[in-house]
């Protein structure tokens, strides 16, 4: 589904991602872990087209996306959330979500001028899609609430719903459980599993090890931009290089 070949990204002299090759299967949950600054977010930014790779290729279902713009990649079916959620706080939850399906619509200026049938239909579709996505993440009851008034965990779910409204086949989640309590983390883990069960390929970055270990089918470990290990949770737990990287960087992963 997602195949990365010798991917490298240099920022000036710094190799944020260095010669990473990896393959992720469809419908699986894949985790990317590593200490702070390891290049995890950069890896996501490369896949989603925010950054152009310095070298290497990214293939999604066999199609090379490494030279594509962000919005083109999104249209191909890559949805994502960011490390920090930025929703429009002064608007309602539903209003935030409606634009999520915009990429599957075609109405332009002319449709607005004459209020065309197509525009009306597409607006209905966007609204339905937004409601469906909100329902999927379990927040149907919040559709008319102002984002300012909902909790951190609810915002995370809204951000998921926004990504889902784009009808992705691959979703990239950057630290979805950061800043939420353990109980809510479990809820989010269940939601992520539900996404995979509905046929999505999930890639997530996370620091919370117990969540990852229980959730992921496959884990890739990055350190200083390089892939130092890859495998099932059990394999990763037992891998001496991983243990060393984590202990060496004084990280809480040992927990």
């Amino acid at each position: 589904m997602l195949k990365v070949e010798n991917l490298t990204k240099m920022f000036g002299g710094l190799a944020a991602v260095h010669d990473v090759s990896v393959e992720f299967e469809a419908r699986g949950i894949n985790a990317i872990i590593g200490p702070n600054g390891a290049g995890k977010s950069t890896f996501f930014n490369l896949i989603s087209g925010v950054h152009k790779p310095t070298s290497g290729r990214i293939l999604i279902d066999g199609q090379d996306v490494s030279r594509m713009r962000c919005d083109q990649v999104a249209r191909l079916g890559v949805g994502r959330t960011f490390q920090t959620t930025h929703l429009f706080e002064q608007a309602t939850v539903l209003d935030n979500l409606i634009v999520g399906h915009r990429l599957r619509t075609r109405s332009g200026l002319w449709d607005v001028l004459v209020n065309s049938r197509r525009l009306q239909r597409e607006e209905r579709e966007c609204r339905d899609k937004a409601r469906a996505a909100l329902d999927f993440v379990g927040l149907a009851h919040l559709e008319n609430r102002v984002v300012l008034d909902i909790s951190q965990e609810e915002r995370k779910r809204v951000a998921f719903a926004l990504a889902l409204a784009t009808e992705p086949k691959l979703v990239l989640l950057d630290e979805p459980a950061a800043g939420v309590n353990p109980e809510e983390t479990e809820g989010l883990a269940r939601l992520i599993r539900k996404m995979a069960e509905h046929g999505l390929t999930v890639c997530l970055i996370e620091h919370k090890m117990d969540m990852i270990m229980g959730l992921a089918d496959k884990i890739m470990v990055l350190n200083y931009g390089e892939k130092i290990a890859e495998g099932t949770p059990a394999e990763i737990k037992a891998d001496p290089t991983v243990i060393e990287a984590y202990l060496g960087s004084d990280h809480d992963a040992a927990a």
């Binding site: 087209g49 925010v50 713009r69 962000c70 919005d71 999104a74 960011f82 915009r102 607005v112 607006e123």
Partner: peptide, 21 residues
Amino acid sequence: SLLGRTFMAIRNGDALAQSLG
């Protein structure tokens, strides 16, 4: 309209808007 919503998504942030295609 959807077009206005598209503009407002851009106001809200280039990165997020782009990730929505």
